[in-house]
Amino acid sequence: MAEIATLSVLPPTAPEDASTAGGGAAGLARFVARRLLRLVGSLLVLVTATFGMIHLLPGNPVRAALGQDATAAVVAARTHQLGLDRTLVDQYFSYLHGVVTGNLGVSIVSSEPVSTILGARIPATLSIALPAFVLVLLVSLPIGLSMALRTRHGRGERTRVAFIGVTGLVNSVPDFVWATLLSAVFVVGLKLLPVAGDAGFTSHILPVVALMLGPAASLSRIVRVEATKVLESEYMQAARSRRLPWRLLYLRHALPNMITASLTFSGMILSGLIAGTVLVENVFAWPGLGTEISQAVVSKDYPLVQGILLILGAMVLAIHLMVDLVLGILDPRSRIGES
């Protein structure tokens, strides 16, 4: 970044300031383009990994899936049907083609197209993952920010200890154990909520809560730490030296920086929700991707496992993309590190 010539005896002309640094609409467009390019790269890795998985298995996957009772002829027929007898390169490109066109092969166990099974399961998973995603943000941002305010500059030591204690405790319990404890209390004990499965709105409550508790605790911790750093920064000290009123100091000067700093670290936690659905669905016998994948792995239904891992992986990448794009819009500086 160059600086304009400002010899006072001279007219301020060339060399023209090249203050690009991601500023302006053109900068944002470039950033989005670069970020999408990176997404394509990650997707390619993901597709290659799920493709490679079936070839890294020891032994014949079809034999493993059909069991020892199947005759050699049946195994050979299935192997041919799945295209596993073609060359690796050939298989790879037809797999790629299939992924792009939505043809993810056929389940070994049920002989149904994988895409059909996924189509039936994805809405159920999203119906608990999306509310949990939104709730995590809605809960942890205000909690983290208010905790940062209450514990700033060494104040509120007791509040800080209590906050650390509670979030630490919540965070130490994994989501599937939360799910177990919650259903023991609210379903078995108090009989307030419906038994397992998807039976309308009330049956969403426990899975969503079990899913969001841990991530909300760790994200609100991160928000507090990042917000505290902002409050202790020199530019906040400078703003205080200008005696700005409370409203400007916190809402205009502190808040945008706190949110961008917190978001920077939230991608990992929010994408962790996707893994959480797998476990939580199994506790509640939820008809989503999570219950499907554990059954598919146990029954060695590899095309189905491939398909589900692909979708879950794509969801993770989508969350990272979303966080990065929001950051890129809110904070022009975050675009610089992307190249």
Partner: peptide, 23 residues
């Protein structure tokens, strides 16, 4: 490569590897 892998939650990776390594 590490960057791409880090994007995925550990449990998803663990399921992926459990498929390969077996139960």
């Amino acid at each position: 490569a590490i960057n791409v892998l880090l994007a995925f939650p550990a449990l998803l990776l663990a399921i992926f590897f459990a498929v390969i390594f077996g139960l």
